[in-house]
Design a protein around this nucleic acid. Structure first.
Lengths: 215, 215
DNA sequence: TGAGTGATGTGAGAGGGTCATACATTGAAT
DNA sequence: ATTCAATGTATGACCCTCTCACATCACTCA
């Protein structure tokens, strides 16, 4: 009998975990999270249906790993585009647009990244988002009034995050038409709205003031 | 043998469709969309596993019906709270807070309402959201400059919608802590951010200007 | 060099879910 | 009373998740 029951060169795959994550992203791009199955991922990776479970505890764990990968790519995109923006205001406003453009590129990828169930169960997803947001903290500090900087800056970032995610959701669900056709327009609108938000940032410290954030 | 193989009084249920929608909402509140199954819904409604398919084409159709119900309730909540708000600015800002509070009340309900897959497949969900948003149009018109009112007003509403949805997502995934504990705080923050957005609404007409909106 | 060992993949299968199909039951219209 | 359409049941095909015993391989250390 062939050394490789499946269509592979060696019995051991080499780096199944990474391959599965990659395949997962592809599948999700095609059929969405709902259509994804680890069986299908195994099939495409030319591996038995049980093999993925050597690397991921369950379906959700694989999805979470894929989401984490998306998160990493988003971060990279941001770092690329933010490099040459001088004004803190503009840098903040721009993130929203960048987010939207990245969404069009990764589609389903963002669906997992934001899947309510997953984020609730896998804290590392929230952590990754948080780290990403923290990249923006310095810019936020520059923008808010020196007095109550800390809290207001964080609140501003939360608001921007909310705004961007909302636009992404609307874009991906086709509210404005075929996502491919309208990405750029929506990105511009998101940027514009973000600018308005940054401009009107004069929000006095609120209930979250004392306890810091994120616990 | 008993007339009712299951624990029901009559062979015919009476209003299975409505009962299923209700049960669906309950299940989702308990175990989330991911944990929901029409088999379980049938079980709880004391009906055979196939019965639901007489009323709903497939699992997604049942979920969509449930989501529509949530949408209806949201609308009712809004109408209740908006009644006695005089200023258009405040009315707009308040919607964000209302949205957040409603989210805490319906939890999983909003998960379905916003589930990317569902909204893409079932246009009636987007329609219902749109009708809801349209309730706010008059207020939006009051707020923007008379000149380019139409487009800007719609853009403002889209931005508010995005913002509110983003906050809801963050709330439900536990970013700020146990949702129950922080609803009110988050609602306040959302309202505040919305106010900032409305205040900085001076966005000139953009690429969406010519073609109207929403197609 | 050549066993031993742990990591990785296989195959079979239990359990459950979706959905289609054929059949049973019933209320309403004739 | 009879018939019909609507509604529920029973059964089963098919797929998926996840488990378990076993096969295969890479690596280590004597």
């Amino acid at each position: 009998m062939a050394l490789t029951p499946k269509g592979r060169a060696t019995y051991h795959h080499g780096d199944l975990a990474a391959a599965l994550v990659q395949t997962t992203l592809e599948i999700i791009d095609e059929v969405g999270v709902r259509g994804f199955s680890v069986a299908e991922a195994a099939r495409r990776t030319c591996v038995s249906p049980g093999a993925p479970y050597r690397h991921f505890a369950d379906r959700d764990a694989l999805l979470a790993a894929a989401a984490l990968e998306v998160s990493r790519r988003l971060r990279a995109i941001y770092l690329d585009t933010a490099a040459d923006i001088g004004s803190a205001q503009e840098r903040l406003a721009m993130v929203a647009g960048t987010y939207v453009r990245a969404a069009a590129r990764y589609r389903g990828g963002l669906d997992i990244l934001f899947a309510p169930g997953l984020r609730a169960t896998h804290p590392e997803l929230r952590d990754s988002s948080r780290e990403f947001v923290d990249l923006l903290l310095p810019s936020a500090f520059e923008v808010v009034a020196p007095g109550e900087a800390a809290v207001t800056a964080v609140a501003l970032l939360d608001a921007l995050h909310a705004l961007a995610r909302g636009y992404v959701a609307q874009l991906l669900e086709g509210k404005f038409g075929d996502p491919d056709d309208v990405v750029e327009d929506v990105a511009i609108r998101a940027t514009r709205a973000a600018r308005a938000l940054v401009a009107g940032h004069g929000m006095p410290s609120g209930p979250f003031g004392e306890e810091g954030r994120d616990r």
